[in-house]
Write a protein that binds this DNA or RNA. Sequence first.
DNA 1: ATTCTTTTTGATATAGCTTATCAATTTCAA
DNA 2: TTGAAATTGATAAGCTATATCAAAAAGAAT
Lengths: 143, 143
Amino acid sequence: MSKHAKEMGILKEHLGKHQLKFTRQRELILDAFLKQEHITAEEMYHQLARRDPHLGLATIYRTLNLFCEAGLAQARHFGTQTQYDNVSHKGHHDHLICTGCGKIVEFENCDIERLQEEVATQNGFTITTHRLELYGLCSRCRH
Amino acid sequence: MSKHAKEMGILKEHLGKHQLKFTRQRELILDAFLKQEHITAEEMYHQLARRDPHLGLATIYRTLNLFCEAGLAQARHFGTQTQYDNVSHKGHHDHLICTGCGKIVEFENCDIERLQEEVATQNGFTITTHRLELYGLCSRCRH
DNA sequence: ATTCTTTTTGATATAGCTTATCAATTTCAA
DNA sequence: TTGAAATTGATAAGCTATATCAAAAAGAAT
Ligand SMILES: [Mn+2]
Ligand SMILES: [Mn+2]
Ligand SMILES: [Zn+2]
Ligand SMILES: [Zn+2]
């Protein structure tokens, strides 16, 4: 049984439902993606260049977007490049980002989530998604 | 006494401190900017094309960024284009954004702000900025 | 008012990231 | 094995924002 059998199964299920095919590239990229928490398409491109020098950047982008549709990834726009967040093994969360070293810490706070709903209700809105990012310095970078 | 005398004063003070010059374009753009809550550079470009067809897009971008440095504006990245937020007459706030019609509602919630600080402290971070955006449907678009 | 230095402007090229295009290749069900 | 349909990789194109640079404008000093 392969290391990422469960996620590979989720992908295959998604592929099956949408008349998409299981390819060597998709397997390769999923395997590498699941070893990361957050990664950009470019980073993944360089990382995989060793294993398969012919893998195209467009394929990386297409495949990471496919993972988003399959629920395995979520695109996040922290800086200039899109970060693909590996959400295969976790639920909703938000982020603390160190502007010094780029460190990203995930957190979940029910109280904040609840207050967001309150704010929305007060203004007649129904929330579908939200984005909460706290930027600052981690303890190491502050000193 | 002009309509935006106070803000024009803030701009002039900033210009004076930084060896920058007061130009016809800067005056024109500030005047138009202060009539908006949120606006993109392109929108402003088209709006002002009537008054001054020769005004360049680069000048709009430069000038709106100048307003940010002077504390009159804040750049926000809601969608694909940067929204310049007119903060000349208000303090910190976050946003509710309707994905149906594009409506933007501003709000401020001290409890959320406080909880954000708590989260940061728990993780050894010192927050310098944050971004909180709630996306959903406004009451009109839900029905 | 004129001169002169510095800043600004507008047109356009360029950058940076992501998606679109398309011929060649691969998948996979029949 | 065959053949229709999807995928891939190379590269062009799209889109927003900034960089470049010669010409124009600002404004302090004369
Ligand atoms: Mn995350
Ligand atoms: Mn605002
Ligand atoms: Zn750090
Ligand atoms: Zn709406």
